[in-house]
Write a protein that binds this DNA or RNA. Structure first.
Lengths: 125, 125
DNA sequence: AGACTTACTTTGCAGTTCTAGGTATGTATC
DNA sequence: GATACATACCTAGAACTGCAAAGTAAGTCT
């Protein structure tokens, strides 16, 4: 049963977090370039590898994995472990190309922002 | 005259550039924190200060300025220069707070990504 | 039996950047 | 004076994407 949402849930919040676009994709490709992993594992790994700076929920990871696989950047295989079935993902050649391009793009932006933030000129010490 | 678009214009393109969310806002606040500026000027300044790494068109800048002013982060005043009218923007206290928060957020993400990209662990030399 | 963790999935919202087009005025060129 | 270019501002609409929330289900532990 249970046909109604009971409570619409309060919306609000500060909505769209800045600086996050493209980040999930970059991190997934980066991690999967090192070794085969499954979704749930990736969620924890991202938290860890970024030093708790970035935390992506399952609602972000799984859809992203599906999209990347659909695009041919990832390939997957099912594997039964401890009576449970996991879906392991790994990079394809296309995925490696994409990772390289994305990482380069990131560095470009990052360099640009850094230049702007350091911005001498004004002096405010 | 000229009442029709003549050609619908081909869409396509590679769509949404990654890593750009929040960036226009951050750069605008950063630049306007140093000195009063007008839209057209900001377009060029951003290109310059980021070392050509980031280039934001007028279609990005003006709406962003309007939104920031509406949110109370910026204040504006009209000024006639060389027979032309310019709209100069500058930071409000609220804008300064926002800049601080955004910059901090940027550094957090940036650090996280960097950690992930450098990621030793695997070794592939 | 109950509670918790693992593991995967889906829906819908929300907010943003970007391209492309359009207006208008001053200045330089022919 | 006509043409072209740079300055200066504005808007609409599309496209994308991350995120929270909720749900399913099966193991494990107490």
């Amino acid at each position: 049963m249970l046909t109604e949402p009971i409570v619409p849930a309060a919306p609000m919040a500060q909505s769209n977090p800045p600086f996050m676009s493209g980040v999930p994709e970059l991190l997934l490709l980066r991690l999967l370039d090192q070794q085969e992993m499954y979704g749930y594992e990736l969620v924890r790994s991202i938290r860890q590898i970024t030093g708790e700076a970035i935390s992506l929920g399952e609602g972000v990871i799984y859809p992203a994995l599906h999209t990347l696989e659909r695009n041919g950047a990832l390939k997957s295989r099912r594997k039964a472990v401890a009576g449970r079935t996991r879906v392991y993902y790994s990079l394809t050649a296309k995925g490696r190309t994409r990772l390289a391009r994305l990482a380069k793009e990131w560095r470009r932006i990052q360099t640009g922002i850094e230049a702007a933030l350091e911005a001498p000129a004004h002096a405010q010490t």
